[in-house]
Design a protein around this nucleic acid. Sequence first.
DNA 1: CACTGTGAAATCGTTCACAGCT
DNA 2: AGCTGTGAACGATTTCACAGTG
Lengths: 224, 224
Amino acid sequence: MSEESHTSRPNPSAIPGAVVSRLSLYLRELQHLIATGKETTSSSQLGRRLGFTDAQVRKDLAHFGHFGHPGIGYKCVELIGEIRKILGTDREWQVALVGVGNLGRALLGYRGFVQQGFRIVMAFDTDSAKVGTEIEGVEVSHLSQLGEVLKAKKIELGMVAVPAAMAQSVTDEFVAAGIKGIVNFAPVTLQVPEGVSMVGVDLARELEQVTFTVANKLANLNDQ
Amino acid sequence: MSEESHTSRPNPSAIPGAVVSRLSLYLRELQHLIATGKETTSSSQLGRRLGFTDAQVRKDLAHFGHFGHPGIGYKCVELIGEIRKILGTDREWQVALVGVGNLGRALLGYRGFVQQGFRIVMAFDTDSAKVGTEIEGVEVSHLSQLGEVLKAKKIELGMVAVPAAMAQSVTDEFVAAGIKGIVNFAPVTLQVPEGVSMVGVDLARELEQVTFTVANKLANLNDQ
DNA sequence: CACTGTGAAATCGTTCACAGCT
DNA sequence: AGCTGTGAACGATTTCACAGTG
């Protein structure tokens, strides 16, 4: 168990995942505040709209430095910059997409990625009807080209938008090609070696979180 | 890990959100095991592939009942049934979609929803070029019809796939129409009254969780 | 005997409350 | 006065370890 000094970079493995997850939310909220003309905000204002306490907002940010101004609060532009530095999005990331089906095409056209500094620069599929075409300005290559292209273009992030049965083998190819992080949209748990970051997005799972709450709310009403 | 609506004041058996979230993962894994011919499994087998301890799997399930068989483990089919009952997906849920852009169209065609018991039965948009057309077998209506249709068809769940600037007003219409739960794909924090469940899916945010890990892994290597 | 279910202990994350700065 | 940053208290979750069971 090692103590952290507040003068040097904190060890990221000591940062709870939940904190990082909230950082993104703070960032969106700050971007919203900027868009509505606010120049400064406070931990309580930030927290209120997101459903967190003011103390939590301050504690979260305190993991990474002293970004606030006592008596004033946080300067939006400044804090946006700091959070982007922490998240690593103070620069552009190039992303490779595998799977140009319904979902893959939607990801190619999603504006939110560009707004946050992500650019899908290459897409791959095994369907020869799709290979060679261009979608949303991005050329679709055959999956067999993946390793070669990834290395040539120095792409660090990958997105998996193929059917569940193919997801693990695509992931293995990403890993073999030296990818650093993967977002997986297939509803399976992927095995990746240590050193590769993986986040899964399972759309049906999100709905299940909602139905659980709804189903149990109804059950409660019956009880009363 | 995802943000959930925090509520359930008078609920004596308050289940942590993280438990519910893992339940969906157990369900996927069990479905995978069934597909590969396994009839029974154990807490340690389930946990290993998902990255949890065996104790956690057992504790999670113990919140809801005694589903295991000492000396044997869990019968896959049986446990799948129990988890679906808990999540409320032991029946079909009808879903309304607002926003038939790139992402909305992908959601309409996503097979994973039907596999888990979700059926998008109605879609809405304000674009008159889309209204009246049929996409993936679903008719697109004008957004102004939302309340009427929702009540007539007894739809309980809504999905928001419109630009960020419109998301709150669409949500307000869902709420006014008596929807029970919402999944929001716009990168904004929506305000919903108590009694309505809300889950947000922010695609760029998922990528940010990955870049944080990648960026800090690199930073550490430089330090050493 | 391999496995579950579960109190008790350990760990982790959140909130409180206040010192200190502007 | 208004707000941040933070040690200390608190609460929640995870892991341990083992009694109990088919």
